[in-house]
Design a protein around this nucleic acid. Sequence first.
DNA 1: TTTTAAAATCTGGTCATACCAGTAGTGCAA
DNA 2: TTGCACTACTGGTATGACCAGATTTTAAAA
Lengths: 236, 236
Amino acid sequence: MDFAKLKAPTLKELFVREIEAMILSGKLKIGDKLPPERILAEKMQVSRAVVNGGIAELSRKGFLRVKPRSGVYVIDYRRHGTVESLLSIMNYNGGHLRRDEIRSILEIKMIVDKLAVELSVDRHSDEDIISLESSLDEIKSQDDSIEKAADAAFSFYHELAMTSQNTLLPLIYRSFRVPVTHLWARFIQKYGNDVVYNNAREIFMALKNHDKAKALASVEKAISASISGSKEIYEA
Amino acid sequence: MDFAKLKAPTLKELFVREIEAMILSGKLKIGDKLPPERILAEKMQVSRAVVNGGIAELSRKGFLRVKPRSGVYVIDYRRHGTVESLLSIMNYNGGHLRRDEIRSILEIKMIVDKLAVELSVDRHSDEDIISLESSLDEIKSQDDSIEKAADAAFSFYHELAMTSQNTLLPLIYRSFRVPVTHLWARFIQKYGNDVVYNNAREIFMALKNHDKAKALASVEKAISASISGSKEIYEA
DNA sequence: TTTTAAAATCTGGTCATACCAGTAGTGCAA
DNA sequence: TTGCACTACTGGTATGACCAGATTTTAAAA
């Protein structure tokens, strides 16, 4: 048996979640001014340090705007947020994504993987092939734990992005780690990790043989499988 | 005359920059353990609140890993960083990007814009066209300030991403705001904002006419212009 | 000597209080 | 109406302290 790792949330994390929930639920509206840190700390029964730190984090996430010596204001996260905001939204919905968010993720994954493959076919080195293959094997060997298999699948595609020699591709890909891994876990749970492994293997082989057309086709095939798979899973 | 907005950096910001520079320059290596917050605060002559807050931020940026009650460790930002790390790297280099980073950005922009156009052609509403057109006009009217023109160009493409109905596209696009705007400022400085405006206009018209092929071609054309433009600028 | 357990130490998370320096609103004077 | 002094407010920062888990050291047990 593999037990879940427990981790006690810190007060700052709790504070962040609380405010996030208030914003996402609409209790706090765009333009609203938050109470002063002192008052907030008093009402929520925490120290100002927690409030100050939490506000700083929410500011970096694109939910709040801090105007020193004036106040803290709620801003439009759909306009100022970064990819991380998605995680907050996901967590707010109890770890689940909406249909249109899944579609959005897969649309992005399609072009990201395609670009990765397209660039990698010409640029990858022998070492890249080796590390890719070991990532690939990792997917197959994780047939006991769904979570680990999903992580392994993510690692493979991440490694793929690394071999593209595009500095940003891995960074973007990593931004989606949580939701993508989450999707895959569902997928593997229903269909087993064989499907994921075979898709990855097909891409890998084409890449190794410098067959760009085949590699791109394989990516399309893999994502298409994810799309139809996600439909079945989430429409059930 | 337009004067620059002055903004005094906070101690936390200075601290973050300092540590970032040490990591990016290699003074702090991956796996290194930072001195305890207390010592760090003492040595750098700031309060522990500054150090604690700064470390929290660097942790979110993917530079550091905080293990409570153990210590703070330097981790591989190329492996754990998000898109924001790019900004840090850029700022570290005095606001300039390396050749391969520019190439990377443009490669990404190409697929992002293409996807935006591809999705938008079928999905955009009448309101979308109106707001896109006003963004477009904004580019043309900003012919006095380079910065504002670059911002306007960014807004246009951002608006374009919004009309795609893909939730994530604007978020990704926004992640690249600083570097992309920076690139454009250079570009406009050399060639004027007419080129940027005309490229955007071409995309807009094709989109309005639901001409997907033309729209995609226009995107390719615009990016190609950026690529050759960036070569001239940065090889000078 | 090796292993184990208890104690001391270290460390980030948090708290409480206080001061600083801009912000923003008020009212008076020019 | 304009300009300025006054003042309450607010986030940024400084200090100093305590908590609880992680780590290391020390001492006891085998």
